[in-house]
Simulated assay, not measured.
Amino acid sequence: MRMVLVIASIVLLSACRTSVYSEEYETMSPNIDVFTFFNGQVNAWGIVQNRDGQLVQRFKVDIKGAVNQQEQLVLDETFTYGFGEGVKHRIWRITRYGDSFKGNASDIATEATGDIYGNALRWQYEMDLPVDDTTYRVHFDDWMWAFDKCTLMNRSYIKKFGLVVAEVTIFMQNREPSMGCTGGLHP
């Protein structure tokens, strides 16, 4: 019985270590503007680590964003992998409702929802994730933070049964000259 309590405590503590509190970001600047940041050419670089911290994927994403006539942000994402395998192409359609968002993509199992907290965006959804010969329904809890008008950092926690099974780290840069974004951090 004692061993069961020790294991349960470890599991609960490890689940808590990835908690992010939205209130922390309400007053931080710069405020994140998803429709402005992703409107145009965005390049991204990321890694996926399993729960042991081992690298399981390294990838680049070419993102072409545009706001359509229905006032939706459409993100056309093309992935290339330096290590590991994964989705090659995804198209997001995102609708804004004040400081909240809803979106979908063909390989996303549920409608994604998001909320702005100052310089952060929390984006959540479920996805059927293929691993070897099996597919798992997992929950993505993404947090994006604006560094400046041209740079975002994304941290995703992939969960199954409420436990983090993998983490994704992505660095994104808007490359639009019209925004003054040509590389590096900007004021």
Rank of each mutant, 00 (worst) to 15 (best):
H89W: 08
Q57L: 03
N174V: 03
V165P: 04
V56L: 04
F161S: 15
V131Q: 09
Q57N: 13
D132Y: 10
P30N: 09
L73E: 06
V138E: 02
Y21G: 06
Q54V: 10
F147Q: 15
G46Y: 01
T151D: 07
T95A: 14
L5Q: 15
G82A: 14
A66C: 06
R17D: 10
I7V: 15
A66S: 15
W143A: 02
F161E: 12
G84M: 02
K60V: 07
T169N: 12
E23V: 11
D107V: 02
F171A: 11
I7A: 13
T169P: 00
I47Q: 12
L152D: 02
V61I: 13
E167M: 11
R51K: 14
T169Y: 08
L152P: 03
R175F: 03
N50G: 07
T110C: 05
T151L: 03
V168I: 14
W143Q: 09
K159Q: 12
D62A: 14
T110R: 09
N50M: 02
D115K: 15
E176D: 14
R96Y: 01
G84W: 00
A8Y: 00
I91W: 00
Q173R: 15
D107R: 08
L13D: 02
I108Y: 00
M144L: 14
I47D: 15
V11C: 10
A112M: 04
L13W: 08
M3W: 12
V20D: 05
S9P: 04
M172Y: 11
Y136H: 15
E176F: 00
Y136D: 04
D62E: 12
T182C: 04
S9I: 10
Y81G: 06
E71P: 02
T36R: 14
R93M: 08
C16S: 13
L152T: 07
L73D: 06
F147V: 14
V48W: 05
M179C: 03
T113V: 13
D148T: 07
A66L: 08
